[in-house]
């Protein structure tokens, strides 16, 4: 299940849910929210991120509110995985529930903007093709991996309940 290659978008510590999903966009749909995602820290991100790219965060990525639009926006923009040394607890759950791979990676700080990456959710291995480096991430427990591979909690439950 080795993922395909994409570019890294690198952000700092404590990227919060108000930055990922600004309050003013919550009344509307996911398109509107996604178009404003992270505008306060990188105004180019939402417009230029490509399907299959990676978001690399610092500590506590996604700290703040329980609004799952924060994870949903990244999914909608086609982000393949979020890689960070630590996550806001609720964001982490929300990401997996949307089928967005969230990898806890102590070495995330070694990744630079634009580096070409691949990530393998099963081994938890992130490869930095630009630098020829491999980083180990905390492996996901089996049933969470199942949720992510199913494409999120809803498709997972759909399968289970049927």
């Amino acid at each position: 299940m080795t993922g395909s290659e994409g570019a890294a978008w690198v952000f700092g510590d404590n990227i919060d849910t108000d930055q990922l999903a600004p309050g003013g966009t919550l009344k509307g749909g996911v398109e509107e929210g996604a178009s404003q995602c992270l505008r306060a820290v990188n105004p180019d991100f939402a417009g230029q991120v490509r399907k299959g790219d990676f978001v690399v965060g610092g500590r506590n990525f996604g700290i703040g509110s329980s609004r799952e639009q924060a994870a949903q926006a990244l999914c909608h923009l086609g982000v393949a995985a979020v890689i960070a040394p630590s996550f806001g607890g609720i964001f982490y759950r929300n990401a997996l529930n949307f089928g967005l791979l969230a990898l806890v990676c102590a070495e995330a700080g070694k990744i630079s903007q634009g580096d070409r990456l691949t990530a393998d959710p099963e081994t938890g291995e992130v490869r930095n093709l630009s630098r020829g480096e491999v980083y180990d991430c905390e492996p996901l427990p089996a049933h969470l991996l199942e949720i992510v591979s199913a494409g999120g909690l809803v498709p997972y439950l759909e399968r289970k309940l049927r």
């Binding site: 609004r67 799952e68 994870a71 609720i90 759950r93 929300n94 999120g152």
Partner: peptide, 8 residues
């Protein structure tokens, strides 16, 4: 928890 989690 988020809404999807809550739905679960």
């Amino acid at each position: 928890v988020g809404s999807t989690d809550m739905a679960g």
